[in-house]
């Protein structure tokens, strides 16, 4: 079979909604796109543990602390499902992680913003996990089998992440004026970065068309962003929080909310590594790997010793 014939047959499978599995033939570009997207997703789960992990010891009570711990532990698990999915494409885990540490691979730019107050933790659960879920639910039907299966599991686990955040904000918003102000301040800082999580606008998205054709993505960045805005407005109203956008208003003709243009200059700056926390986040990951090396070496040595005893 020629390359062209293989590609036609591959696209036919995609069009018939047949999932692609690790040993199936796939175009090199399909494989590369998946490695890039899934590893970026995995890194986001892992780096995403940093701003929240920082608040575990400062959670206001034992219940919130247990919940936050469980959420951060979930993110570690989600990173792992996704790293495993990347490995099925023939890229080693070590290489995938080294690419993050060298700055070659990206992660979601939202985690380059700091979590300054306790209200930020609730807001991250509500808006950041909410935006992530919007994206991930769509990915449950992605064309690559291992990625789709990881997404199904992640979505099942993640719905509590958004709910716990919303519940925590509910408490703050019905508390003292200072607590309410703290929630509004978090909303003001996280709203725009949350909208940026859906990536560049469709007009500027380099990989979008091909990814839609291959059904790696099922919806475009702008479609998902619009769904998120439409779903979130009413939730903000119930909290009594104001969305920091004077142009946000219902458009009867479109059946959607209109909203202001995103500050793309800021978006690209953060993507390029110039956000408030880019250096700190990467440094924390590199440090964790270097300082944890002895644990991995000890575990390997112990496993060898036990194997020798068994065979003796």
């Amino acid at each position: 079979m020629t390359q062209a014939e293989k590609e036609i047959r591959f696209q036919e499978k995609i069009d018939r909604e047949i999932k692609i599995e690790p040993n199936d033939w796939m175009p090199d570009e399909y494989r590369q796109t998946l490695v890039r997207q899934i590893s970026q997703h995995a890194h986001s789960e892992i780096v995403g543990m940093l701003p929240e992990g920082n608040w575990i010891t400062r959670a206001p009570n034992l219940r919130r602390k247990a919940v936050l711990l469980a959420k951060v532990q979930d993110e570690a698990g989600h990173g792992l499902y996704l790293y495993s999915a990347v490995e099925t494409l023939g890229t080693s885990r070590e290489q995938t992680i080294d690419d993050l540490h060298s700055g070659k691979a990206k992660y979601s730019s939202i985690f380059n913003y700091p979590a300054l107050t306790w209200a930020d933790i609730g807001t991250i659960g509500w808006l950041v996990d909410g935006a992530a879920i919007m994206n991930q639910v769509a990915l449950c039907r992605t064309s690559y089998g291992p990625y789709a299966r990881a997404m199904v599991k992640i979505c099942k686990e993640e719905s509590f992440h958004q709910r716990q955040g919303y519940e925590s904000l509910m408490k703050l918003c019905s508390g003292t004026p200072q607590q309410k102000a703290m929630a509004q301040d978090a909303m003001n800082r996280f709203w725009w970065p949350a909208l940026m999580m859906f990536g560049p606008s469709d007009a500027d998205s380099t990989h979008s068309d091909q990814s839609i054709k291959w059904k790696i993505k099922r919806f475009t960045n702008d479609e998902l962003r619009q769904s998120f805005v439409d779903a979130t407005v009413a939730q903000a109203e119930i909290l009594g929080l104001t969305i920091p956008d004077p142009n946000l208003k219902w458009n009867e003709a479109r059946g959607h909310y209109d909203f202001s243009e995103i500050n793309w200059e800021e978006f690209w700056q953060v993507v390029k590594g110039n956000g408030p926390c880019n250096k700190e986040r990467l440094a924390a990951r590199v440090k964790a790997k270097e300082e944890g090396a002895w644990v991995r070496e000890a575990a390997t040595a112990f496993a060898k010793k036990r194997a020798m005893k068994k065979s003796a």
Binding site: G77, E157, A303, R306
Partner: peptide, 23 residues
């Protein structure tokens, strides 16, 4: 349900518990 990396079977089982059976 999936895969993971571990130095031996004992740790693979413990990691599998933490990664795949949290609920």
């Amino acid at each position: 349900v999936g895969s993971l990396r571990a130095p031996d079977a004992t740790l693979a089982l413990e990691n599998a518990r933490d990664v795949y059976t949290r609920r």
